[in-house]
Amino acid sequence: MKKRKERIDRGIKVRSEDIFALSSWREMLYFAAPRVIPVAVFILLPLVLGDYWQRVYLSVAVFALLAISWDILSQSGMISLGQALFFGMGAYCSGVLNHYFGISPFLTIPIAAVVGGAICTVMLLPVLRLRGVYFSMVTLIIPLMLERVIEATKIFGGTEGLSGLDVLPSKWLEMYILVAAMIAALFGFRRMMTSDYGLVLTGIKDNDRSVMNAGINIYWFKIQALFIASAVGAFAGAMMTHVYRFVGMPVFALDYSILPIAAVMVGGPGSFAGAVLGAFILVPLSEALRALGGLRIVFYGVFLVVFVVGMPEGIFHFIARKYSQFERWAEVDK
């Protein structure tokens, strides 16, 4: 008798999606564990880490936010190669406001998130009508261009950058603002993408002409998605500025564009959870490989290629499938 492998949803998954979930601890745990455990880990992790790894954790959170912002764009059909634009714009906005106008970080960070996001959106408006690779090319070029503009015109401190910026009152505060932002972004945007609004965005990705046919102005929706994504990126940049007390040309570096993409590809695109997971894997790894210096970019690249070719679904989707489904050999009957 011939056999084949069958993939079936776990009974507990089906039960826990229903109202019966409330009737047993096991099912409640099955349903809640994938949500509660990561949140608990995010919150408790800073308490057990040493000073150095706390710093690493900060940049994990920053890259997780950038990866989430990349994922929002890619789920709305815009493939960005320049998260550094959002990051750098937010960083410079808050840096300039703090350095020249002496505004407190508590105000500069939210202002930078909104204003930086708006500036990025306006800069990318002309290419929004283009599909496919054109959008990517422009997003790739703009941060590199801005870097040279700052170098050539010597505005905002030129190559030296602006240093000695104000810092948030306590390191725990900056840590938990970032962690809270990461958790909020992760669950908030997951929710947004499953709502009707998110449905329109994914529709634009799948078939933009059909969405137009439904009487929806896709450019308006694209602008909104772009603003949301760039505000998230700008927030990460503004936070980082005040953590390092410095803003300069490196904020437009290629690292901030490539690593978020690599993180999403490793973790799994289209779920945000994959983006965060990818950042949690890649950033500490690259920190451990700090000795390699410039070769680290090569290392992200290799990771990207390996995962794109060998496991395009990413780690998160793989784990999620194992969690919710099991496989068994079934007889092929006629």
Partner: peptide
């Protein structure tokens, strides 16, 4: 298979 999507089996 690489995408982890639907598995196609042919006999």
């Amino acid at each position: 298979k690489r995408k982890g999507g639907e598995r196609i089996t042919v006999y």
